[in-house]
């Protein structure tokens, strides 16, 4: 019984930690509209003066090809938005993943946000 109780406690703590960590990492992502697309992983690297990001987008729908748009916002060290990419259209077939890579054109960018807009059906 005590083992079960411990397991439940561990599970609860793990869930809380996961929830907190997910909450922190999601600050770079904003999905607008229906959640038919997921950003499964993303990261940023510094190339000289410029920030480069990679994001892996997945169409989780089993039946339909998804067409949607995405944009990257680039932020400076003060948290001011310095630039945005144009919205870009992308199509992903059902249950497929696509990797997108974007690089800022201006120096001194320290943060970013990936915005995905999925149209309502």
């Amino acid at each position: 019984m005590s083992l079960t109780k411990n397991s439940v406690m561990s599970l609860a703590i793990s869930s809380l930690l996961l929830a907190f960590s997910t909450g922190c990492t999601q600050k770079n992502i904003n999905i607008i509209g229906e959640k038919r697309v997921e950003i499964t992983k993303y990261k940023s690297v510094q190339e000289g003066n410029f920030m480069k990001i990679m994001a892996e987008l997945e169409n989780t729908d089993n039946d339909n090809t998804e067409g949607f748009v995405y944009q990257i916002e680039w932020y400076d060290k003060n948290g001011f938005i310095k630039d945005t990419t144009p919205w870009k259209a992308i199509t992903i077939h059902k249950n497929q993943k696509v990797q997108v890579i974007e690089m800022t054109n201006i120096p001194d960018i320290v943060d970013y946000k990936i915005i995905v807009s999925v149209p309502n059906k």
Binding site: Q71, T84, T85, P86, W87, K88, A89, N105
Partner: peptide, 25 residues
Amino acid sequence: AKAVETVTADFGSTDLQSTAEALTQ
């Protein structure tokens, strides 16, 4: 101004913006 425009299939603002972005990078 940066929205994806699909009014016609002619070369448009979205093509201009995405071309400039990609080639600059």
